[in-house]
Amino acid sequence: MLRKFLAIVEDTIREGLAKKTILGMLIVSTVTIIIAVLLFQMDSVQKGLLSPAGEHIKNGSNQPAPGLMGLSVLEYVWMSISMMLLVASIFVGSFVTTGFITSLMEKGNIDLLLSKPVPRWLYIVGRYSGAVLIILVEVSYLIFGLWLVAGLSLHTWSGVFLASIPLITLSFAGVYALVTLVGILTRSSWFAMIIGLAIYVLASIVVPIAQWIDKLLNGDTGGGIVTTVAKIFHYTIPSEGMGGALNEVLLSKELHSTPLFLTTGLAMVYVAIACYAFSKKEF
């Protein structure tokens, strides 16, 4: 079973390497690292990065913003980069990998795969794992590269920066579970990507909107039926709250594990539903 699983993962990676998009992502990462090397050579940048963030970013009353107390500009910049990467890996990552699910079901290919002594769910789990592995490598390459550049130029080595590697990968894995399910149901990579990402975005903004509607309807803030429904929706979509968790780890060095467990659990549930749907499909 393990050998068959690895064969499917390997095939997914091969298919990925044959695609220009994944190579493109590696090239963009490399360029980013090179730019960082050049920037970090400059004295002014070095000095600026090591100074306390509070000196530069003030709130309305010209006091350092409370969240930035005791943080260097570098840490602040790092947090911004990580958040950008989180969003990019979810969106760009889904764009690049959604084809793995639909190419599996192409005519002429699927018949042969299903004729092999392999339980159907293994194909989904294998393809899903292959895609997550590719994103893990991409994210690790970029973040580890930047961390190395920063460490070498500024002589500060903060291990907590590297925590964004598993957190960002997990965020992608959560959303990709959703994309996988939609991909199997619709057999279209465009639908999978657009619908999957739309659900993710909607779930992340739906609670404040629902609270606003409840306020309009019955004047009170939150707690209405619309808000309750919105919250249920919000909490059944994976990767919601992962941005917050990442932020917290990088700024206050505290890890709140709830979003991590929730995302892991939901990703497993969505992949399981995708496997079930796939096992009932005819080709």
Binding site: R14, E15, L17, A18, G108, N109, D111, S115, K116, P117
Partner: peptide
């Protein structure tokens, strides 16, 4: 388990071009 001992050539099969 039966599929372990079956070989199949589908019509219009396609293999990954790469």
């Amino acid at each position: 388990s039966a599929k372990e001992h079956i070989g199949y050539l589908p019509e219009n099969h396609r293999y990954p071009a790469h």
